[in-house]
C-alpha cells in the first residue's frame, strides 16, 4: 500500500471569480514508504499546488488523496492524522518561525499532536540533532539564528512530528552550496533512520538527479514525464521544450558523445561522468 496516493486530482484557483485559473488537471501519483521522489517543473507548472494536496491543505475540486489507504476527506480525524503523517515544509520555511525559543517552535507540531511531555522533549532533541542545532541554539530566539540555521530549525519543526512522508518545497532555495549539501545530507539521514519517504520539489536538475529514485515532471498542471532519472533525462528535447535543462553532467556527456567520445548512456551526475571518463582514459590518466 502506498504511503500517500493521489487519484486523478484536479484543482482550480479562485474558482468562480474572473481570476479563475486551473492549476492541476487530473494528476495521479503514488509514493511508497522509503521512496525518494523528485518533483520538477517550470514555475507555475502546478508542483507546489500539488504537494499541498497531499496533506489536505488544499481541497481538490476533483479526485481524492489517500494517506495509508484512508481517504483524508473521510473524516476530520483522518485529515488531522494526514497532516501529521505527511509532513510538508514550505518554501522559505524560516519565515514561519514564531515562538520565543527555537525549542518551543520545534515542539509546536508534537504539542498539536497531543503527545506526552517526555516524548515531545525526546522528539525535539532528536529533530534538533538532525537539523544540526546545538543545545545552546535551542534556547535562543529563532530570530537570533542565521539564515541557514533558521531554515534548519523550521525543517526540524516538521521532522519532530516524525512524518512517514516528508515533503519539502524548494528546501535549498537561497542557500550557499555548503549549506545546501549539508541540508540535503540531513534529509537523507532522516529518511534512512525513519524509513520515511521523501518528496522534494525542486528547480535544480542536479539535485533531482543526485538524490531521487524517481522523478515526476509537471507541466501545465499535468504529469508530463515520470520515471527514474535516467529514463526522464533521455527526453532531453521534451524537457527543453518545457523550459527545463538537463543536469550539467548530462549536457557535457551529450556534447562529448556528439564529438565521438564513446561514453555510455545514462550519465547525469557529475560523479558518474567522472568515473566514466576516468574509465575511458584508463591507464594513461592514472599514470
Amino acid at each position: 500500500m502506498p504511503a500517500v496516493q493521489a487519484e486523478n486530482i484536479s484543482y482550480v484557483y479562485s474558482a468562480g471569480t474572473p481570476f479563475e485559473r486551473p492549476a492541476l488537471r487530473g494528476v495521479s501519483f503514488a509514493c511508497e514508504k522509503g521512496e525518494y521522489v523528485g518533483i520538477i517543473g517550470h514555475t507555475g507548472s502546478g508542483k507546489s499546488t500539488f504537494v499541498q494536496q497531499l496533506n489536505g491543505l488544499l481541497t481538490p475540486s476533483e479526485g481524492r488523496v489517500l494517506v495509508g489507504g484512508v481517504d483524508i476527506r473521510s473524516s476530520k480525524a483522518a485529515l488531522r492524522e494526514a497532516r501529521f503523517r505527511v509532513g510538508l515544509v514550505f518554501q522559505f520555511p524560516e519565515y514561519q518561525l514564531f515562538e520565543e525559543t527555537v525549542y518551543r517552535d520545534i515542539s509546536f507540531g508534537p504539542r498539536n499532536m497531543g503527545l506526552p511531555a517526555d516524548e515531545i522533549d525526546e522528539r525535539v532533541r532528536e529533530a534538533a540533532v538532525f537539523a544540526g542545532l546545538s543545545e545552546a541554539e535551542l534556547g535562543k530566539s529563532p530570530f537570533e539564528l542565521s539564515g541557514g540555521q533558521k531554515r534548519r530549525a523550521a525543517i526540524a519543526g516538521v521532522i519532530a512530528m516524525r512524518p512517514e512522508v516528508l515533503i519539502l518545497d524548494e528546501p535549498t532555495a537561497g542557500l550557499d552550496p555548503a549549506g545546501r549539501d549539508s541540508l540535503l545530507a540531513n534529509i537523507d539521514g532522516y529518511r534512512d533512520r525513519q524509513g520515511a519517504a521523501v518528496i522534494i520539489v525542486t528547480h535544480s536538475m542536479e539535485e533531482a538527479a543526485r538524490r531521487a529514485d524517481r522523478l515526476v515532471v509537471f507541466m501545465d498542471g499535468l504529469v508530463a514525464l515520470e520515471g527514474t532519472p535516467s529514463e526522464v533525462f533521455r527526453h532531453a528535447a521534451a524537457l527543453r521544450e518545457m523550459g527545463l535543462a538537463l543536469p550539467a553532467a548530462a549536457q557535457i556527456a551529450g556534447k562529448l558523445k556528439a564529438r565521438g567520445v564513446p561514453l555510455p548512456d545514462g550519465l547525469y551526475t557529475s560523479a558518474a561522468l567522472r568515473d566514466a571518463l576516468v574509465g575511458l582514459l584508463g591507464g594513461s590518466y592514472a599514470s
Binding site: Q52, L88, F90, F98, E99
Partner: peptide, 30 residues
C-alpha cells in the same frame, strides 16, 4: 503562514473564542 502552521497541526477552525484567539499568535508573529 496559515497553511504552514496548519501543516504542523495548528487548528484555526475549532475550539472556543480564547482558543481561536490563541491560535492566531503563530500567524501574527511571522
Amino acid at each position: 503562514i496559515m497553511s504552514a502552521q496548519k501543516a504542523r497541526g495548528a487548528d484555526f477552525e475549532s475550539g472556543g473564542l480564547v482558543k481561536r484567539a490563541k491560535a492566531l499568535l503563530p500567524i501574527l508573529v511571522p
